[in-house]
Amino acid sequence: MGANGITRVGVVGSGTMGAGIAQLCATRGLDVRLAVSRESSLTSAPARIAASFDRGVEKGKLTRAERDAALARISVGTDLAELGDRDLVIEAIPEDEPLKLGLFATLDKIAGDATILASTTSAIAITRLAAATTRPDRVIGLHFFNPVTAMQLVEVVPALPTAADVTEQVTAFAEHALDRRAVTVADRSGFVVNALLIPYLLAAIRMVDTGYCPAEDVDRAMELGCAHPLGPLRLADLIGLDVVAAIAAALHEEFKEPRYAAPPSLSRLVEAGHLGRKTGRGFHTY
């Protein structure tokens, strides 16, 4: 590990969150290795990240030289073994617990003894992920928010066995290396933000399901009446209805409370592949 702490970062997964985390780390001067699962992602992932950097240049958030330097700090590969020299590896694959457990078991075998393994899961217990490794004291939750490059919050989630110095190091990394604001939260499904947000989104969906109020009017009411930048249905579409449903399922599994149960229309939209903004249709059409 570098003299200044975490300087070499690995990211597993090149979806919205993984690509955003890689971009943020590279922008902050860190050496980033992005692990992808498909050969096609070797070209598509860097292209998406480059396009995002280009939008930043157009908006005056960074210069073209800064963009080029940040891009040069990101290497992309399909071999997880290339993450063996990383100080910190952040898992950002889909919200599928067996998939994540398998990945943590694999990372445990290839990462150095001092490497910290982190997950950006929205709802899966970090303690369960830590139990898949032989280093549970070096496993922690590091939950970013979408879009990663704009949202200031990071939830730091120590598992029951996470060492205190690991929590301190990861918190310092989030706040100083990444210039984010960190909150330390208990290892319970949903943490703070989603434990409060998801029931609100589900309540809005139920309001539409019962015919009480159309989606457009629910969104307009919350945007104008509560000064929310996005109404709950538009926000659910932005997050991804599959992600909302997965977090709701994890919350319902943990707490067994009816307010966490997915409303029928949410389930039907997900089954139909209408996942919100990313597919062009959800509760609204894009």
Rank of each mutant, 00 (worst) to 15 (best):
A70D: 11
S40E: 14
S265R: 05
R188G: 07
A51L: 11
L196E: 14
I205K: 00
H143M: 12
R259T: 00
R73E: 09
S189H: 11
E95R: 02
K100P: 00
L230I: 09
E168G: 07
T16E: 15
D31F: 12
A236V: 13
G20I: 15
T167N: 04
K256V: 01
G141F: 14
S189V: 13
G10Q: 04
A227G: 04
A262L: 05
L83I: 09
A236T: 10
S44T: 15
P232N: 13
R138N: 09
L269A: 04
L42F: 10
A45E: 09
Q152Y: 09
C213Y: 00
T16V: 15
P229A: 10
A125F: 03
E168K: 10
G29Y: 12
S44L: 11
L83F: 04
H252T: 06
T43P: 07
A249H: 04
F255L: 02
S41G: 08
A245W: 01
L62Y: 11
M222S: 01
L269E: 04
C25Y: 03
G77W: 04
L83E: 02
P46N: 12
L129E: 00
P264D: 02
A125M: 10
C25Q: 09
M207V: 11
A215H: 06
S267E: 04
L103F: 08
I198Q: 00
R277Q: 07
Q23P: 12
A261W: 01
R181G: 01
P264I: 01
D31Q: 15
L196V: 15
H228L: 03
L101H: 09
V11C: 07
L142P: 01
R48I: 07
E58I: 13
D79H: 06
L160Y: 03
R86L: 08
D209F: 12
V57E: 10
P161D: 11
A215L: 12
D187C: 11
A195R: 15
E95I: 13
E253Q: 12
D179F: 10
A125N: 06
